[in-house]
Computed example of a mutant assay.
Amino acid sequence: MPESTVHTTELTSQYISQVANDLDRNVKEQERVTEELAALQEQLATLKRDHTVLVNMQQALGAPTTAPEPSHTDSAVVPSPRKKPALASSARQPAKKAPAQGPRGKKTAGKSAQPKLVDLIHQYVAKQREPRSAVEIAEALRQAHTERTIDTKVVRTTLENLVAKSRVHRTKQGSSVFYTAANAPGQEAASTDKSQPETATA
């Protein structure tokens, strides 16, 4: 009986010590995860503020907003308090400087009065009597507006947005894609001209 009692007491003390160590590790792990979570929440809040500033810059420059919107997980993550407003203010400074750094140092007032790229593209396509590819449209706009930087990929994306809005029609000839305005001049006349010889021979 005394030996069994001593053995039981030793096992109990070992369990108590092990549980205490596990509990201590658990508390430390919780503290570590809490610190990482706070850092990630602060980083997420900073990224969201920077994203808003960048979107505003993109709209101010007249470029189409093609960047995907981030998935919202506000219900799962509680935003951290604003601890570093300096980051947002520093991001706003490039936004104020961006219009002044336009091509060839044009006046900011004149630049803000320029039409948007989407309007230039639609106006150009509407004036064409034949389908035009994105490369042809971009090249024509670059020649007509030398003060602007016009990227072919941006033009193609803008054309696809206009197609989605039914303002531009898209046709495919082989591996090439061409675009025409929804009501391009001469389209109806061209279709009737093609049909006249058939009716005449009939």
Rank of each mutant, 00 (worst) to 15 (best):
N183S: 13
S191R: 15
T157P: 00
G110M: 03
E130S: 12
T171N: 05
Q114A: 12
T157E: 02
A38Q: 11
P103R: 15
L162G: 02
M57H: 04
Q59K: 15
R49Y: 00
A126V: 03
V168E: 04
A38K: 12
R148W: 08
Q114I: 00
A95Y: 08
A45R: 15
P81Y: 09
A164T: 11
P70S: 04
P85G: 01
A202I: 10
V53K: 04
R167G: 02
H122K: 13
A202W: 12
T66G: 08
E3Q: 08
L120A: 14
V135W: 01
R104A: 14
G102P: 00
R92I: 09
S112I: 06
T12H: 05
L87S: 14
T201I: 10
T201P: 00
T149C: 01
R82Q: 09
V168Q: 07
H7I: 07
R92M: 11
L61I: 07
A39W: 06
E139W: 01
L87C: 06
A45K: 15
A88H: 08
K83Y: 04
A95V: 05
Q114H: 00
G186S: 08
V53R: 03
Q143W: 06
A20D: 12
T157M: 07
Y15W: 02
H122N: 13
T73L: 13
V27S: 03
E139T: 12
D24M: 08
L162W: 01
A182D: 07
R148M: 15
T66R: 04
K84T: 07
Q18H: 07
T108N: 06
D74T: 13
P115M: 07
T108W: 03
T34L: 10
H72G: 01
Y179N: 04
S191T: 14
K48P: 00
I16W: 11
A164V: 06
T201A: 10
S80H: 13
D22T: 02
K153P: 00
S4W: 12
H51S: 09
T199L: 15
S133N: 03
A98W: 05
D151R: 15
R129V: 09
A126M: 09
I137P: 02
S195P: 00
K83F: 03
S13G: 01
K172S: 11
R129T: 14
Q18F: 09
D193E: 14
G174P: 06
G102I: 07
